[in-house]
Design a protein around this nucleic acid. Structure first.
Lengths: 234, 234
DNA sequence: TTCCAATCAGTTGTATACAATGATACAAAA
DNA sequence: TTTTGTATCATTGTATACAACTGATTGGAA
């Protein structure tokens, strides 16, 4: 069921103008192309992407709901951006929720997904030794996706996927810049083993720590550059 | 800063057609007016609310992002609704996150908000003895709002507010139908006292349990009627 | 000079027109 | 009878037109 909706979302994103605008803007905001407090004008964005105001407006509505832009009625749309504090808060929440997810996944994961997870970790080890950081980041991404799909909770899946995408830009840089990739993969392996042993409490604790470690590492290795936001008023 | 955005949201909701459509539809989906799998047609909804397709479409985008409707490109919008499982999952997540929120609030709450909280609890006791269930529900609502505003985390505030609104319809019925209101208020009082004592760990644990109790109570006292969804295929 | 108001430019809010897509019904052929 | 092709219709996707609002500028009066 959840795969249905994600497939539809893919199709939607790919073929509709609105979807393309939404993702383009989201990406732009998260990677700093559109900076905090910048005003987004409907016609300007429309021309930039070669579409009319209608799809742009619809994309704005979604970005507003995600909190990436703030709309002031009859005035304009302003980039809220993602601050250091936001990243910290997301990791705090994710630590708890990824733990919950891992616990639930222990109870509900299918044999098929467990195999994909095993393959994922195996592949990650390979790419880590070869220094293929892009593949590594993709696999890391996918590992968490598998967990989300396996927790048997539509709401949790949805929430975690949102958070994950939110910090994706930051994470990507981090995995490619440091040795975190290998450590991360090792932690994935431990989580998977706990799931295989059907030890839900252990899986929860490990997933918890996995997030805390990821955040700590990020802070240590140049957090600010990872978010390439150049300014910050306070 | 967070109050700014909520004010804007209020203004927005009140004065723009899109906002009105969004809330009307959201309410309708959550309270069962629009049932699961029902198709929402743009023109029909537009005529129903006396607006054109444009604001309706923009509201659809937001509902889609919240997961309340599913849109199939070039086909239509279908109500996803909120199932028993969704409510269970939300309470599971809320239990963890409200705990986190209470912990953070312990560190960051202002004197002003603490006073409002105290007043809230005092008023709740009064209305509880008088059987004013509507006011009780409103105050319960507000208590959590104060916590969200006090945690000093924009993301957490946003997330919890979303969840809260999601289960609001269900909660309201529950608070009005049972003696849960009084028990709930007592738990609020304990949480507040922990915050006043600056015992963050205790506040976290209490908020945790508060959610679990709320959910348990809901299950015991006719969960299905609270969600007035009449059908369910499986 | 300063203040106020009127006007104007620019932007968003909403409605509508047109295009494209998918569903359905019906007819014709196997 | 069943199947397939086609025409038609309903619905969504997108563009555009117009209305309403906001902010700024200009001009005049005190």
């Amino acid at each position: 069921m959840s795969s249905d909706s994600s497939i539809n979302k893919e199709v939607n994103d790919k073929y509709s103008l609105r979807g393309r605008v939404f993702h383009k803007l989201r990406e732009g905001i998260l990677d700093g192309t559109y900076q905090e407090h910048e005003e987004l004008k409907e016609v300007a964005i429309g021309e930039e992407l070669g579409v009319s105001r209608t799809p742009v407006r619809e994309a704005f509505r979604q970005l507003e709901l995600e909190g990436l832009i703030q709309m002031i009625p009859n005035k304009g749309a302003y980039v809220t951006g993602i601050t250091d504090e936001d990243v910290r808060d997301i990791y705090q929440m994710r630590s708890l929720l990824e733990g919950l997810c891992a616990r639930l996944a222990t109870e509900h994961i299918t044999e098929e997904r467990l195999e994909e997870m095993e393959e994922n970790i195996y592949l990650s080890e390979f790419h880590a030794t070869k220094g293929h950081y892009n593949q590594l980041a993709e696999l890391d991404n996918r590992f968490h996706e598998i967990l989300y799909e396996s927790c048997n909770s539509k709401m949790l899946e949805h929430t975690l996927r949102d958070f994950h995408q939110y910090v994706w830009q930051v994470r990507k840089k981090n995995l490619t810049n440091t040795m975190r990739g290998q450590a991360s993969n090792h932690e994935h392996k431990l989580i998977m083993e706990a799931i295989k042993e059907k030890d839900a409490a252990k899986a929860e604790r490990l997933a918890n720590e996995h997030m805390i470690n990821a955040y700590q590492n990020m802070k240590n290795h140049g957090f600010e550059e990872a978010l390439n936001h150049t300014k910050k008023e306070k």
